[in-house]
Amino acid sequence: MNILSALGATIIAQFEALGGYLLFVGKSATAGFLPPYRVRLLLKQMHFVGVESLTIVVITSIFTGMVFAIQAEIGFSQFGANGLIGGIVALSLTRELSPVLTALMVNGRVGSAMAAELGTMRVTEQVDALESMAIDPMQYLVAPRVLASIVMVPALTMIFNVIGLAGCWYVAVQQLQVPEGGFWARIWWFVDEDDVLGGCFKGAVFGFILSSIGCYQGFHTRGGAEGVGRATTRAVVISGVLILTSDYFLTRILAPLSVG
């Protein structure tokens, strides 16, 4: 009986948390569409999410492209198909690696920062101060962060594609002597605009996930510095898991659309 009641309480708590999160998302979406429009705050967050994440995205993408070129060469050289390296790596990057790795890197940098910043504002009563000044914190703090992430994570995904491909080109063409003409020809043959757009769509969904979870955790922080630490950890872990699990479902939805 005790086990059953404990299980029931856990399930109810999970549904309460889910309901709370959905309400939070609904409120922030509503707040984002209502005036005053916070263009300056949006641009500031776009700079933070996008421009300031460029270094980690460039480093991650170039090495991912290079590593995948080496790994692909190991497999394809066994049946003399080195010319496929460019196409296969480009397809992997545009469809999967770029959106997922970009989102995971941005989550580590931006999702955690959002949870920590909003959490600190919550425990030091800065959020209450905003409300006391008749300013909607959902509109002032949450909506610009979520919108900036939805716009900038796909943009970073595109940059990941380009730089990752450059890394792949360097290893495949310059080091492994893959013919350059065949390298590019296979990319044009394998990859079409649906793959790129699908990857960007995934990036937008991942951007929404990491920012809304980061803001939600920060916004509901309790209990001082320890609470801020817990909120930050929860934000990164939950977003990371959700990015990877939602990637499966997004792939199931998008894969049939890009056939042919």
């Binding site: 030091t124 009563e125 800065q126 209450d128 101060a129 409300e131 006391s132 000044m133 008749a134």
Partner: peptide
């Protein structure tokens, strides 16, 4: 709320 001013315990200044 527009008609209120509030001084918070720890000031709650925007850092």
């Amino acid at each position: 709320r527009f008609r209120f001013g509030m001084v918070f315990q720890n000031a709650a200044l925007f850092d």
